[in-house]
Write a protein that binds this DNA or RNA. Sequence first.
RNA 1: GGUCUUGUAGCUCAACUGGAUAGAGCAACAGCCUUCUAAGCUGUAGGUUCUGGGUUCGAGUCCCAGCGGGAUCACCA
Length: 601
Amino acid sequence: MEKKITQTVIEAVKALYGQDVEEKQAGLQKTRPEFEGNLTLVVFPFVKIARKKPEEVAEEIGAYLVEHCDAVSKYNVVKGFLNLSINDSSWLSTLAAIDADEHYGEKQATEESPLVMIEYSSPNTNKPLHLGHVRNNLLGWSLAQIMSANGNKVVKTNIVNDRGIHICKSMLAWLKYGNGETPETSGKKGDHLIGDYYVAFDKHYKAECDELAKQYIAEGMTEDAAKEKAKQEAPLIKEAHEMLVKWENNDPEVRALWSKMNEWVYAGFDETYKALGVGFDKIYYESNTYLEGKDKVEEGLEKGFFYRRDDNSVWADLTKEGLDEKLLLRSDGTSVYMTQDIGTAKLRFQDFPIDQMIYVVGNEQNYHFQVLSILLDKLGFKWGKDLVHFSYGMVELPNGKMKSREGTVVDADDLIATMIADARQTSDELGKYDDMSEEEKQEIARIVGMGALKYFILKVDARKNMLFNPAESIDFNGNTGPFIQYTYARIRSILRKAAAEGLTPTLPSAVEMNEKEIALTQKISEYGAAVAQAGKDYSPSGIANYCYELTKSFNQFYHDYSILGADTAEQKQLRLVLAANVAKTIKNGMALLGIEVPERM
RNA sequence: GGUCUUGUAGCUCAACUGGAUAGAGCAACAGCCUUCUAAGCUGUAGGUUCUGGGUUCGAGUCCCAGCGGGAUCACCA
C-alpha cells in the first residue's frame, strides 16, 4: 500500500511539475500522533522543482493523491508536511495480507540467495564463559536469525581457540595440583574445572615471580627490571612453554591430556550454549587451522603484496592505506593471529561458497579486522573487501571493567541460574499459576528469566559499551523481555477463551475501524520494514525496540477496549484478528532475538 | 601522540539514517484490580541532546575545531 502511494507521488510530481524524482525522496513516514492522518509526505524536496510555497505544493500533491489513489481518503497540510488519511478498506486489506502469512514481513531464502557466514562465540578453552561472551553469543545468534529473515542463506560458525600457552597453563596446573580430579569426581562443570586450574596456575606463578623478583632486587636489579625478568624466568612459565613445544611436536602424552581436558571444556560449553539457546552449523578448531594461511602468505609474497625482511620475517606494508606495517610471519617462520585468520578464511571458502562474511568480535579488535579486510582483498577473496566486522562494545560493571584477575567477572552459568531463579521467585510471589505442575512452572521461569537476560543485552545498540549492575540485576518491569512475553501470554489467553466460545478469528469483509485499531494495524504492518532495516544495519536492537513499541501499543489498546466484549460481532472478529497478529508478530520478532514466548505466565 | 569509537532526563536506554513540540523504562510523587492476567494502565515532575562554529527550508543526526569517556597502535591471541 505504502509503495503504491509513493509511486503515485512520483506520478504526481511528474504530472504537476514535469520532473522525475527518486523513490527515496517520495518516501512516506508515519504521521505524528498529534496530527490527523496515518502517513505523511515531506514535500520540501519538491518545492525547488515546483517553484511554489511548501503549502501550495502539499495541497496540489494531496489533491492529486485523493483523486488518483484509492487508498487515500483525505489529506491535510501543516507547513511542508502533507498528512494523508488512509481509508478503512485499505487497512482491512493490509491486515488481511498480514493475517494470511505466518511470517509476514520476513523473506525466505531461495537457491539464488547470497550465502552469509557468521562467525561468533569463538571462546578460549581455558576458562568458562562470562558476560562478555554472553553478549557475543546472543548478538551472533540474533544476527543469524535476522539475516535469515532477510532472505539470506546463513551458516553459523565458531572458531574455537583450543591451543596455545593458555591451555598449557591449565594443563600444567592440573598435573601439579590436581590429584587427578575430573568433572565426575569433583562434580564441577568441565569448563569451570579447567578455569579453576588456570587461576591456580596464575596464583602459583605470581608467587614464584614475587620471590624471584625479590632475589633479583637483592642482587642489585631495579624493581621494574627484576619484575620483568622474573616473569620470564619463573620455573612454571618455562615449564608451560616446554609443554607448548611438546604439544607442537605431537608429544603423545601431552596431546592425550590436551584432548581429555578439552573434551571436558566442550561438554561444559555445550551446556552453556544450550542454556543460551545458541548453536552452530560448523565449528572450526584452531589446532587444525593455525598452520593454514602460511602458503597464502607465501603466495602474496610471490605476487609482491608482501615483503621479507633481513631477519626472515614477512610483513605487509599498509602505509598507503593509511595504516601501519603488519607482521604476517615471525622470523622463525611461525604464524601469528593475522596469518591464522587468513588461513581460516581459506578453509571456510573451500567449505562454503561464501558471499558475505560477518565476524562478531569485540571492538578491541577493530584494527585487526580493518587490516584483515585489506589483506583478504589483496589475496583475492571476493568478499574480503566488504567483510563485516560486527563490532560490539564491552560490558562494564559499575566499578569498571570485568577483570578475571581481580575476580570481578560475571560468570555466564551463574548469571543464567540467577535469572531463572529470580523469575521463579517473582512468579511464585505473584501466585499466578498455582495449578501448574512443578515442571511447567520451572519451564516458564526458564523462558522468562532467559528472556529478561537476552532482551536486556540485545536492546542496547551493539556498538556501545553497556553497563551491567549485578546488584540491581535485571528488571522484570518496564522495557524488558518479560513485559513483552507477558503481553504475548495475555493475548494467547484471550484467544483460548475465544476458542472456548467457538470463535475462530476471521476477518470480516467490511467493518468500521477506530483510530486505535488503525494504529495497531499500522504498527504490525511496520514489522517488515523493521526487519529489513535491522538486516541493513545488522541491528538486533532495532528489532527489540520494534517489539517493545508494538507491545506498548497493544497494552494501551487492551486497556482502552475490550476484545471479547466488543459491541458487534464484526468488531469482535476484527479485534481478535488484530490480537492474534500482534501475538504472531511478537513471537516472530522475539524469535529473531532468540527469545522464546510462553503460552502462560 | 596517531587511528577508530562514544557523549541525549538523577540512572539505564530510544529516536525509523536530515523532518513537525527529542521519547520510554527505572527511581520520586498522585491515581486505577466486581470488568479479556496489575510482570499491567493513567497522570505529575524531570532536557541549552558535552562546548563552539558551519552546511540548509529544517541538525541529537552531516562537516570542522575543542573538551570528556572507551578501544587500539606487540615477532600475544
